[in-house]
């Protein structure tokens, strides 16, 4: 905050402060009740250790945090989560962008294609996962492959419905970005001798980089938290080969304390990765007002 802003804030009178508080109160109440209180309760839960399979709990302070976050289970879950992100996000980003570029033109009936491409966004996660489950069924599927029981392919099989489903999201967001690129700038590039590929890579993509950055962050967070696809396609198997961090948390239904610690671990992992994306990529993003 600059000095100027601070001085201005000091000048608000009691009536203005009261009014501002009144306007902020509803959203603040929602945040406190549904986010801050549950989050602090979660942190607290992590300090209780389950005794005899959840019969009772005893307070162990930060010991359980040290134990769980330093243990193999957390590490393995984190590795699987990162693998899942790497399998889904780049593919979704690239395919979504290509589809949006292909559908961003003035053609008769293009709206129909745009509606089709974005429709995956409106389908249910469970339904799309079940469709993929049957597509890859070794006995009755269209592609009779046994990826679900192959430890090297299980996570990939669970990644496919995610990619398919979020293609619609990526498409809609990138298309909105493309529509904001002024025609005149692209025409100027055409006159400057830029061919279609050069226009895309030198002009269009840099101009929509804030949108791509937003999409990347969102997709990474959503992929980190993906659950139904894994649950339906592989159920974490075979032998835990596709158990991501979220799936490991789900497994702790008998041990709330450990589940809470893993959840806190997931929260901070997501935060660190998002922060890193901003630090590494933000310099390459062009925002209009720079």
């Amino acid at each position: 905050m600059s000095d100027g802003t601070r001085r201005r804030l000091g000048r608000y009178d009691a009536k203005e402060v009261g009014l501002a508080t009144l306007f902020l109160a509803p959203s603040l109440a929602v945040f406190v009740v549904f986010f801050y209180i549950p989050f602090f309760r979660l942190l607290q839960w992590g300090t209780y250790k389950s005794v005899r399979g959840g019969e009772s709990y005893k307070q162990v302070g930060l010991d359980q945090y040290r134990e769980v976050l330093g243990g193999d289970e957390f590490r393995q879950g984190l590795i699987h989560s990162v693998q899942y992100v790497l399998l889904t996000v780049p593919a979704g980003l690239v395919l979504g962008t290509l589809l949006a570029v292909a559908a961003h033109r003035r053609l008769k009936g293009i709206k129909v294609y745009q509606a089709i491409f974005s429709s995956t966004l409106a389908s249910s996660v469970a339904v799309s996962s079940v469709i993929f489950f049957f597509l890859f069924n070794p006995a009755i599927g269209t592609f009779q492959v046994n990826w679900r029981s192959d430890p090297d392919m299980a996570l990939f099989a669970a990644a496919l419905p995610f990619i398919w489903q979020n293609l619609g999201l990526a498409f809609v967001i990138v298309l909105a970005g493309l529509q904001a690129v002024p025609d005149e700038v692209l025409e100027a590039a055409t006159l400057d001798g830029y061919g279609p590929w050069r226009r895309l890579t030198r002009i269009t993509l840099p101009l929509i980089s804030p949108v791509l950055m937003f999409l990347l962050v969102i997709l990474v967070i959503v992929a980190f938290q993906a659950f139904p696809q894994i649950e339906i396609i592989t159920n974490g198997g075979p032998a835990g080969a596709s158990e991501t961090l979220v799936f490991k948390i789900f497994r702790q239904s008998q041990d709330y304390g450990k589940g809470a610690v893993l959840s806190v671990g997931l929260f901070f992992a997501t935060m660190v990765i998002t922060f890193l994306q901003f630090v590494i990529l933000d310099r390459r993003v062009h925002y209009g007002d720079e």
């Binding site: 005149e184 100027a188 062009h286």
Partner: peptide, 9 residues
């Protein structure tokens, strides 16, 4: 161009 159409980046 009317909007100048400069490349902002």
């Amino acid at each position: 161009f009317q909007s100048y159409a400069l490349y902002p980046h």
